[in-house]
Amino acid sequence: MVPMPSKHHAVANAVNEFTVLPLALPPTSSFPKKATHYLYLRPNAPKLPTADTPREVFLVNVPVDSTETHIRALFAGQLGGSRIDRVDFEGARAGKGITAPVTSVKKGRKRKRTDAEGNVSTAEEVGKLPETWDRELHRSGGTAIVTFVDKASSDLAMKEARKAAKAGQEIQWSLVIEAQAKLLGSARYTAHHSLAYPDSAVLQQSVDDFMTAFSAQESARSRALTKQRSVPDSDGFVTVTRGGRAGPAREEEAREKGEELKKREKQRVGEDFYRFQTREKRKAEQMDLVKGFEEDRRRLEEMRKRRGKVRPE
């Protein structure tokens, strides 16, 4: 195992506009080694600032198991005691990149949902399926936005963090707090296993709610569509919308009909009717053979390149 780079290299205490805050990770029984985690923070500066922006701090490289309680305790207990309004963790678990800085999500702690579901978000709110995890985890290297109660608190927090970083002061992560959070390890999975099987009445209720909202939404939409179909807009155009009189299947049917027609056309004149047809067919067959042969030759050439000469073992 490569030793900690920090022992050989100077760790920066600031990078770009970020302050680097080292967090001492306590050793555990299975990994009895002290490690240091580096949290990066700076005042939030999104491209489109909101009213809350001044009292927000943007965190990068949040520990995967951090909770709001952890962050609150970190600032309240060890960094000047600033009070926090809320913490928004980066939710999108998109494969590679995340866009940063993340703008504050209005919906609260809920995960960012995909567009597919955005259509039905009204139904979503009422018919949500029961949660199956009692403690969320965050992608390694992920970000979070901490909203303090006011700008003064956020400034104080940043100042304290800078000071701690400069002084090389050891900030402890999660020692006390962990005891208050939901357990990790097998307990968490056991809890998950039991949460994954919700009570059937609860589940029934959630499904019913969803379906009611869904059908309401459907009918609202079809009403809207009908309206769109019949009412010209301000420029006098009528929007063309799907789902007219013939219903949603029309498009597919039309395509099918088109293909049928093509097929019929082809069958009308038999394939071997004209002499040129047979001739062309034969020619095409021969071309296929030649092409196949060339293809095989190429393949053999490749095989030779890969495996060397053809030779009995």
Partner: peptide, 11 residues
């Protein structure tokens, strides 16, 4: 910012 793993900032 966008590294997908925990890092150490080294000068």
């Amino acid at each position: 910012v966008n590294l997908a793993y925990s890092t150490v900032p080294v000068k």
